[in-house]
Amino acid sequence: MSVDKDTVMRVARLARIAIPEDRVLPMAEELNRILAWVEQLNSVDTSGVEPLTSVVKMDLKRRADKVTDGGYAGDLMANAPLSEDNFFAVPKVVE
C-alpha cells in the first residue's frame, strides 16, 4: 500500500487541509515511511482477537431527559470569527 501524489491530494481533501503543490510529494514520502513502519503489525497473528472497544470496563453513563443546558448564544458567538444576529456566518454554501 503505497501512497502516491493523488492519494495525498485525496486524503488532504478529505481532511480539508490545503497542501501546496511542492509539499505533496514530500508529504507522500513522509506518509509512506510511517505507513511502511506501521506495517510491522501484519506480522502479528490477530485471528480470533476482538478489536478493543474501550479500555475501561464500565457501563455507559446515561443522563436523565432534562433540559439543563443552553440559552447562551452570546457566549457561543464570543469566539466566532464571524457572526450575525446570533448566527455563525460562513462563506455562502451552494447546494
Binding site: A12, R13, A15, R16, I17, A18, I19, P20, L76, N79, A80, P81, L82, F88, V90, P91, K92, V93, V94
Partner: peptide
C-alpha cells in the same frame, strides 16, 4: 466557523482548507 483562526476562502471548502493549512 465557531472559534479560533479563520482564513478567507472563495467558498466554504476553500475557507476550511486554507484555515486548517
Amino acid at each position: 466557523v465557531r472559534f479560533g483562526l479563520r482564513e478567507a476562502g472563495s467558498d466554504i471548502t476553500d475557507m476550511y482548507e486554507k484555515t486548517r493549512a
